[in-house]
Design a binder for these strands. Structure first.
Lengths: 95, 95
DNA sequence: ACCTCATATCTAATATTTTCGATATATTGA
DNA sequence: TCAATATATCGAAAATATTAGATATGAGGT
């Protein structure tokens, strides 16, 4: 059973790796399937799949299957959650 | 020379480790010196120092020396930067 | 100057993450 | 059903992060 800190850490794992930030940046303009992402990244297919899993686990990215392809995009809901969580984590109690 | 993604990743490294989240949580109520933090965490002195360095490098935490002690606290400016950066990173272009 | 205490740095061990190649699964089309 | 394509999972190697103990630095007091 993961602790609350572990769950929170999983959200920000999305953003603490260079390659994943590159992937997120590529999703700014909208949905991209894995093969498109791979085309622009110097990593193998299984490595990309591993990063996509971490991104999806964080909730910040979601995948949508369409036939053989999976289209990934930034989740508005997941992103908002991450921002709210970050605000909470860095809030200082007024005293 | 670090890439832009590496610099951004450094900000979120603060939040992707359980122990660091525990430290940040301890700073919610205000300044704490390293010895106070260590008292409540099951880690050695050098390990705490290592984590404090990562937290300070992220900009989210700042240290203030007072005599022999260093008082750490959450940086309002650093936190706001992190929140804004997160918003930018997860922004989706309206098209 | 010396001693003490708080924190940082160094070094090495261990743990975790990233990566790749091979294989498995899932979907489509023939 | 079989072949082809996209993605996931497995297993192992390489890279990186975390950790602890030893030592160094820095500040205050004697």
């Amino acid at each position: 059973m993961p602790t609350i800190h572990e769950k929170h850490a999983a959200v920000f794992k999305a953003f603490c790796d260079e390659k994943r930030l590159a992937i997120i940046t590529m999703l700014h303009k909208g949905e991209r399937c894995a093969c498109e992402l791979q085309e622009y990244l110097p990593i193998g297919q299984s490595t990309l799949s591993h990063h996509m899993k971490i991104l999806c686990d964080s909730g910040v990215v979601v995948g949508r299957r369409e036939g053989k392809w999976i289209y990934y995009s930034i989740s508005r809901q997941g992103s908002e959650y991450a921002v709210e969580l970050l605000k909470q984590l860095t809030a200082v109690s007024p005293d």
